[in-house]
Amino acid sequence: MIKIEDLKKSFDENVILKGISLTVKAQEVVVLIGPSGAGKSTFLRCLNKLETINSGHVYINAQDITDPKVDINKIRQKIGMVFQDFNLFPHMTVLENIMISPIKVKKESRDTAYETASQLLTKVGLANKADAYPDDLSGGQKQRIAIARALAMKPDIMLFDEPTSALDPEMVGEVLTVMQNLAKEGMTMVVVTHEMGFAREVGSRIIFMDRGYIVEENSPQELFSHPQKERTKAFLSKILSSQNNKLPL
């Protein structure tokens, strides 16, 4: 579904991604963890070409998005992305936020788009907020709307970049629950998160990234119980002690 070969990315002279190769199979939930500055966000943003790619290849459904002939707008329709700070469109209601892309990009009829949007709102538990504006929502609600907005394009893949990092602790759970349900339905997901409980529970595979490399990858059980590399151990002990395993699932 996603195949990444020796992906390299730098900003000016700063090499951020130093050759990443990874394959994500359909219905897998790959969780990326790693310290700040490791390049996790940059990596995720390369997958839908929000960042230009310096070298290597990224295949989405067997199409190489580094090929300039590939229409990236088409590819992006198949890849939903959820951002840390939501990025809802503040001048539109919740419903309009969700409907705009299906209507304008996919040329769906308003009725069809409305139908989908209503179902998605119910799914994320916010059917009563259809006519609200983003500014009137809590962080957790905003993020659930952002997920619904991405899902409205009926993507094959969902990318999450620290979707709960900007949330008050009591709202983390509601967003993780939506994500967990999505995973259960078989969505292919790549998730950057510091929520180790979610990683362990929902992840099919954990990737530990540091300084532009994949240091270690394994099943959640293996990676958390028997980390092989020193850097992984150090990172895990630090983050687990600070998190105290506050899994709200």
Partner: peptide, 24 residues
């Protein structure tokens, strides 16, 4: 983030400008 969110939904540059950026 506004243009990134709209582009990630598959909007072209022009659509993103027209529906998301300019109205704001």
């Amino acid at each position: 983030g506004q243009s990134e969110a709209s582009r990630s939904l598959g909007m072209t540059k022009i659509q993103s400008m027209r529906y998301i950026i300019l109205p704001q």
